[in-house]
Amino acid sequence: MRLNIGDYEIIKGLYYSKEHEWVRIIGEKTAEIGITDYAAKLLNDVVYVGLPTLGAEVKQNGIIGSVESIKAVSDVYSPISGKVTKVNENLNSTPEIINQSPYQDGWIVRIIIQGIPNELELLFSSDRYTEYLKNLVGEKS
């Protein structure tokens, strides 16, 4: 299910970070990570995505990649600890799918979850991220 705050879409059932990454649990120990519609729209035209190497291990809030628009570069922080098992290689040739489909085709990495169990509890639910975004967007206008 989709929620909307202004122009920004949020997907129910995902976990969200303060830095506007999302986590989708896709298996007992596997998670998919990307950036939110808000982050993608803030960057505008994404023209390059820096991907990690396979097997790289990352701690919660550690840098797992970068997303660059024409104007700016933004680090992608891993919302949970894990080991990179897959990267979205489509982003090498068509980075713009991050703008077109931030929650589906524009996923960035898949990891094997290695963190302590309560790491997910430190993240926002979709409802709480919606509130967070509401405040953020409200503040700016």
Binding site: N44, D45, V47, S69, I70, K71
Partner: peptide, 11 residues
């Protein structure tokens, strides 16, 4: 104004 529709399209 930084961009209206997007930097690339305007460029």
């Amino acid at each position: 104004p930084l961009w209206y529709k997007g930097i690339e399209e305007e460029h």
